[in-house]
């Protein structure tokens, strides 16, 4: 990839840019963390590679001035969503788009090293090299991707001011909605059992809400005390209500950055719910989120000729 440090240093020298939102190496093996560079020296810490998993878009509104931000294509789709919904201003962004070959799942990598101590790691092209106390090992990035990546059809950000990295050619992508279609085929009782078992395990820690770039309500419905829609206690009834409404609130808006899925400590398959909503909105209203800033989100508009087969 181009020399991102020099690019960042040039940007931060500009009077109009308050900070650069990017990534630095974290302490744990295979960890990267969000990093805000405010000075040219800060810029030296910036990295950009396949372990830069976080969607940084949620940090934009912490700044009042203009920011430069590194975005993968899926992150850029969240930008599109927020611009559509007037939550951020285009003039206050300098978007550094990254062509993306897929992001690595740190959990999968940690499993692969089988408890050995990692001294360091480095990414080169489509390989990740792991340095142990003694010896080293190389892994193929494509074997350790996040679940959202193999079927991803957007490898160039839909929106950017400058674009880095080589163009990624994809062929024979697996079908994005394969799992959703499989679940749809289950009889109603099995569907309910499948989901109730997952909902029952939910801790209602709301990590999925906190991390979602499109869950920006100042007061989430779960916090409402009057009326209290969801009781504070953790039980199937409330957990299920939470999950139904969370997924519904993201219908036509979720851009499948998969961050909720990644953040969930209980491995609840949130993407399956999100993708069901994506499928529904595409089938009924011919709309796919994260593409076009000028089109209103599908649930904030309507057409007189919308389908209504189920209405009597």
């Amino acid at each position: 990839m181009e020399d991102i440090i020099n690019i960042a240093r040039e940007l931060i020298k500009r009077d109009d840019i308050e900070a650069i939102i990017g990534y630095e190496k974290g302490r744990a093996p295979f960890q990267t963390v969000p990093f805000f560079a405010r000075t040219p020296e800060d810029c030296d810490k910036l990295i950009m590679n396949s372990l830069c998993v976080n969607n940084l878009v949620s940090y934009i509104n912490q700044f009042s001035g203009k920011v430069a931000i590194f975005v993968k294509p899926c992150d850029a789709k969240a930008l599109v969503g927020l611009l559509q919904e007037h939550q951020i201003e285009r003039e206050k962004l300098h978007i550094i788009g990254i062509n993306c070959q897929g992001a690595l799942n740190p959990k999968k990598l940690r499993n692969a090293i089988k408890g050995r101590m990692v001294k360091d790691w480095s990414i080169n092209g489509d390989k990740i090299k792991v340095y142990y106390e003694s010896g080293e090992e190389e892994f193929n990035i494509k074997d350790f991707l996040l679940d959202k990546c193999p079927a991803c059809d957007t490898r160039t950000p839909p929106i950017y001011d400058e674009l880095l990295g080589d163009e990624i050619k994809t062929a024979d992508l697996p079908e994005l909605l394969a799992r959703v279609k499989e679940l749809e085929k289950l009889p109603a009782a099995e569907k309910q059992q499948y989901w109730n078992e997952h909902f029952e395990r939910c801790l209602r820690c709301y990590a999925c809400v906190k991390i979602c770039p499109l869950c920006y309500c100042e007061r989430c419905f779960v916090e409402n005390a009057s009326p209290q829609w969801i009781d504070k206690s953790n039980n199937l009834k409330s957990n299920k209500a939470f999950h139904l409404i969370r997924a519904y609130h993201l219908a036509g808006r979720c851009i499948d950055c998969g961050e909720c899925d990644r953040a969930c400590p209980m491995d609840i398959p949130l993407r399956e719910l999100n993708l069901k909503m994506r499928k529904s909105v595409e089938e009924h209203f011919n709309y796919v989120p994260g593409k076009d800033i000028d089109v209103p989100p599908p649930l904030s508009t309507f057409k007189k000729e919308d389908p209504q087969d189920f209405i009597r």
Binding site: E184, A188, W195, L273, M277, H284, L299, D306, F310
Partner: peptide
């Protein structure tokens, strides 16, 4: 329309 799909997906008849 969308919410009905979700209810069915999660097992409501």
């Amino acid at each position: 329309t969308v919410f009905k799909d979700l209810l069915e997906f999660t097992g409501l008849d």
